[in-house]
Design a protein around this nucleic acid. Structure first.
Lengths: 159, 159
DNA sequence: GCTGAAAATACTAATAC
DNA sequence: GTATTAGTATTTTCAGC
């Protein structure tokens, strides 16, 4: 799949604000409405646009504690990994799961209301699966939150 | 600000899929269209709904390397912090900035196309501001990605 | 690939209940 | 809160260049 400058511009607008009407996007990228709409449609079908979602304010909802939990596997079998993912994917506070390079095997981004809730999560995690080590990092504040990808550094495909 | 079950349900629907029309949301939460639309409007004005955005697929755009960079401040003055935030907020690959509790002071989520790009970012960062220590963790794969907040564990406000 | 316009849908706001 | 209405905006499709 290739992207020209116009594609990147369209995607960049939408990943910042998905409420911008197609007519205005078309105007900004120098296209008329129909071809612009068709490109967006194509990107949606191809899965380049994964979803359109509303971003909520965690503090307003009392979800002000974010923790990053780094985990070492007890062994490196396929069975352990499968079980680990099955357990963590179904745990409510786990928002993201990253498989890591280096000494730690996985990192979880965990969102909970407060420390007692984190403690409860920690108990559930450690009693659900055996781990070699767990180390948690707590965020006091999220200074910047950005779901958009850094597209401006990308070169358009030469096709 | 208080949220009843209906508010939480509405927000949960929108944070998973913001394309669902108000009529269908109203139907799902057992409200008619007008009050449902007014609640959504209220949450948008109050900033509970921060934004509506499109989520893009990083791999499709050649942005497959995510790194978490943990930083220790060289000192704990207000000046250092201000400068650090000024520098990092303007660096393209930096998507999120967390202020941490513990030995490390900040963690950055960094998204780049590949290792050379990360190397370039690292050079820019370390030459822009003095740091006591930097340690990076690299993600091989993002197994789960979820921007939605875990609302199902929340109790509705008793009002 | 593009333009322009029509049709279908959804949103927004106001009404009376 | 509901139901209905109407006007506006947007999305989507359909012709033709």
């Amino acid at each position: 799949m290739t992207f020209d400058r116009i594609d990147l511009k369209i995607l960049d607008i939408l990943q910042r604000d998905a409420t911008v009407p197609v007519a205005r996007i078309a105007d900004k990228v120098g296209l008329s409405q129909t071809p612009c709409w068709k490109r967006i449609q194509k990107h949606e079908e191809a899965g380049v646009i994964r979803a359109r979602v509303a971003l909520l304010n965690p503090d307003a909802l009392g979800l002000s504690l974010t923790a990053f939990v780094m985990v070492e596997a007890i062994d490196h079998t396929a069975e352990w990994r499968t079980e680990f993912l099955t357990v963590t994917e179904t745990l409510e506070p786990v928002r993201d799961i990253y498989r890591l390079a280096g000494t730690h095997d996985f990192m979880l981004r965990v969102v909970v209301p407060d420390m007692p809730a984190f403690d409860a999560f920690y108990d559930t995690l450690t009693s659900s699966i055996r781990l070699r080590s767990v180390s948690s990092v707590f965020a006091l504040e999220q200074v910047k939150a950005c779901t958009a990808l850094p597209l401006s550094g990308l070169f358009p495909s030469p096709n």
